Amino acid sequence: MQVVSISSLKGGVGKTSVTTGLASAALAAGIPTLVVDLDPHADASTALGVQPRDQLDIGRMLKNPRKYRLAENVVQSGWVERADQNGRGPAVLDVAVGSAYTGIYDRPDLGRRDLRRLSAVLAGTDKYQLVLIDCPPSLNGLTRIAWSASDKVTLVAEPGLFSVAGTERTMRAIQLFRQEFAPHLSPAGIVANRVRSGSSEHTFRLAEMTSMFGELLLEPHIPEQANWQQIQGAAHSVHHWPGDSAKTTAALFDALLGNLMATGSTMRSRSQR
C-alpha cells in the first residue's frame, strides 16, 4: 500500500483537483484506492460524490483512532457505480469523509502522539493499493499528521511566482520534517497544475521550476481546464465526463498516476542533495 499526501503551501493551486484527478485515474485503472479528506473544507468529499449515513468523518476517527475501525466508516465514492456501468468493475474507491471537525488538529503545536493519529487510523488495513490524502493548504498540524502517515508527498503548484516560492519553502519543510519525525518520507514530486500554454509567464515559470527542482517536477503538466468546476460540481470523475477535453485531461492523469507510483529511491536521493 502506498500512502501519498497531496500538499501545497498556497491555496488556490488546484490541490483537490489533482487529488480527484488521480483518484479518477486509479479508479479507471482498477487500483483499489482510499481518499482521506483531511481538508476541513471537505471539498474532495463533495467532488467524490459521497453520501455518508452513520459513518464517522475522518476528524472523529482521528479523535479516537484505536476505538473506531476504518473499514466501518469509509464511504464508497459515488463514482464507482458509473465505473461499474462502463465495465470497469469491480472497482474500489472509498473515502474517509472530511469535515470541519478536523480543524481542531490544524495547529502548529502538535506533539508526536498527535502526529501519529492518522497512522493509527490506517493501521491494519490491507484493502487498498493506494491511499491519497488531500491536505489543507498549510503546513500546520493536519498536514504534518498526513506526512507522518505517508510514504510520499506530492506537491501541487501553479507556474506563478508566489506558488513556485511556496513550493521551494515546502520542500525545505519536508526535509526538516523527515529529519525530526519521518525518516521514511520522500517527495514523490511536484505537479505543475493549471498550466496555460499560451502564457509567457507560465512558460518562464515552468523553465524556472525545471531548473530549481529537476526530476522532481513530474510529467505531464496539467493544463487549465475551463469545465473543471462543472465536473466537480456534478460529482463526476474526469474519466466519465463527455467531450474531447475531458478525455485529454483523463489521459494526462493516467500518465501522471503512473509516474507518481513509479517514483522511489531516485526521488529520495535527489531530495537529500
Rank of each mutant, 00 (worst) to 15 (best):
L132T: 11
R196E: 14
V4R: 06
R116F: 00
Y105E: 01
W228K: 00
V75D: 07
D94A: 09
G166C: 08
A165R: 15
V195Q: 08
K63V: 10
G78Y: 08
K67T: 15
E168M: 08
A251S: 15
P52W: 06
E158S: 09
R107N: 05
T20P: 09
S8D: 08
L122G: 12
D84L: 05
V80C: 08
Q76F: 01
T102N: 08
V92D: 05
A71I: 13
R112P: 00
M171P: 02
S148G: 03
L260K: 05
V74C: 08
A235I: 01
P52M: 07
S8P: 04
I31E: 05
G59R: 06
H236Y: 07
E168G: 00
L93W: 09
S138Y: 04
V95A: 04
R117K: 15
A83L: 06
P65H: 09
R117V: 07
Y101A: 14
S5Y: 01
A188R: 03
K152Q: 14
D126A: 14
M267L: 02
L9M: 05
N86T: 03
V195K: 07
A100P: 04
D134W: 08
W241Q: 11
I174D: 01
H239F: 06
H202T: 02
H184N: 10
G198H: 14
G87T: 01
A192V: 13
M209T: 09
G98W: 05
S200L: 14
L216F: 04
L216H: 13
F213N: 03
L217A: 07
R205F: 13
L139A: 02
I58C: 03
D94H: 15
F177I: 02
E158A: 10
D151L: 06
K152R: 14
P223D: 14
L115Y: 02
